[in-house]
């Protein structure tokens, strides 16, 4: 009987483990190497300084083509900016508002409640400026790809100057080791010294990639720290409660042959 129970529990785990993986193993691109992110594991948290550096990379490089439509300036509190800093950042952006009393649309400096504006007015404009490829929104990017953070990091660092011999690379495309099909419309976005960090961190391509991935993982999962913190409390509580329930169960069943 006990064996049956154990088998069933093992089966439950197996079902989740193996179908989860099976469903995800896909694609003809190489598997991105696993990176050591600060938010991994039960106690993993974000590194605020890294998130701010990543934001700097997004703002100065990615934002030229990629929107971040689920993030409002007020959300930047989550990467450690205070209210005045957020107001200053928001004010750097022109936000379209209106109509005003004359019925016209107008632009004004951003407010904390505004969302990051899209670099293109609509998808057609985005496609027209980028050789037909629409630069995807980045808010959820690390959740929307298998092994998201590892993949985005591998992609950003996986450009090769020359396609391998015999590879037919189309005009205007770049060769990327980790992109499915290897032909990517995005030209290599990062290079050494692409951004000058305010905190003096060495501005290597790899550092840029690592930081912006951290930032994008935060935009995809801003609740991560709260989730893990609450999770630990909940599971500790459940372990105590379950142990007590087990003790009560033993007591109640003590004199029953079963």
């Amino acid at each position: 009987m006990r064996k049956f129970a154990l088998t069933a529990i093992a089966a439950a785990f197996a079902v989740t483990a193996f179908t989860g993986n099976a469903a995800k193993a896909a694609g003809d691109a190489p598997v991105p190497p696993s990176q050591d992110w600060s938010w991994k594991g039960l106690f993993g948290t974000y590194d605020r300084a890294q998130l701010q550096r990543g934001f700097q990379v997004y703002k100065n490089v990615c934002a030229g083509c990629h929107s971040l439509r689920f993030i409002a300036f007020r959300n930047l509190e989550g990467i450690g900016f205070n209210e005045d800093q957020i107001k200053a950042i928001a004010a750097e952006y022109d936000i379209e508002d209106g109509p005003n009393d004359d019925g016209d649309m107008f632009t004004r400096p951003g407010k904390p409640s505004d969302y990051f504006p899209s670099p293109f007015p609509n998808e057609k404009a985005a496609a027209a400026s980028n050789g037909g490829a629409i630069p995807p929104d980045l808010s959820l990017m690390t959740k929307a790809r298998v092994a998201g953070p590892d993949y985005v990091f591998a992609l950003l660092t996986g450009y090769e100057e020359e396609a391998p011999e015999g590879f037919d690379l189309s005009d205007g495309k770049s060769y990327n080791h980790y992109f499915p099909g290897h032909q990517i419309s995005m030209a290599p976005p990062l290079y050494d010294e692409a951004v000058e960090y305010t905190d003096g961190t060495p501005a290597t391509l790899e550092q840029h990639a690592r930081d912006v991935v951290a930032f994008l993982n935060w935009t995809a999962q801003p609740e991560l720290e709260a989730r893990k913190e609450l999770g630990l409390k909940v599971i500790l509580f459940l372990i105590v409660l379950t142990a007590m329930l087990y003790a009560v169960k033993r007591k109640i069943w003590r004199d029953i042959e079963h």
């Binding site: 989740t16 989860g20 995800k24 909940v234 459940l238 372990i239 379950t242 329930l245 087990y246």
Partner: peptide, 24 residues
């Protein structure tokens, strides 16, 4: 008691691998 054990399993997913069973 069974519910307690099950909730630990359930919560492990909810709090630590919420998207594991879903599709990116």
């Amino acid at each position: 008691f069974g519910l307690g054990v099950f909730l630990i399993f359930f919560c492990a997913f909810v709090f630590f691998a919420p998207d594991y069973l879903g599709h990116p």
